[in-house]
């Protein structure tokens, strides 16, 4: 079922999300964890490129990391699915392989 891309760096500090978005193919999934959850929030300077990615990929964000940072799930971009650790495991098993963009 394509590749699961896992991104864990802030999109404002590192280029790992940008690189991931360049190489993620249609049908792939992108899971935002740790500081990458900042990319999942509405109306930031990076929100447009995340919304563009939603047209070809599924995008997920890890809820415990959103809450740890004081962010609200209600402010996550529409179309991004918020998952917990169990969902993380489900994604890792559902997709053919995993690329962690550390």
């Amino acid at each position: 079922m394509g590749m699961l891309h896992v991104v864990n760096k802030s999109p404002f500090e590192k280029t790992s999300l940008d690189s991931c978005l360049v190489y993620a193919k249609e049908g792939a999934a992108i899971l935002l964890i740790e500081d990458a959850v900042y990319a999942a929030l509405k109306d930031t300077a990076v929100a447009d490129k995340v919304r563009a990615a939603l047209k070809k990929c599924k995008v997920y964000a890890l809820e415990p990391d959103i809450k740890a940072r004081g962010m609200e799930v209600a402010k996550v971009i529409d179309g991004i699915d918020v998952v917990n650790y169990g969902g993380f495991v489900d994604l890792a098993t559902a997709y053919d392989n995993v690329h962690s963009w550390v």
Partner: peptide
């Protein structure tokens, strides 16, 4: 500045990530 402003975000809740909430 930059991502440092996130340090001051209110409502931090680290109970789900097993880290100390130092905010």
């Amino acid at each position: 500045v930059d991502d440092g402003v996130y340090q001051l975000k209110k409502g931090q809740d680290t109970s789900g990530v097993e880290m100390k909430n130092f905010s």
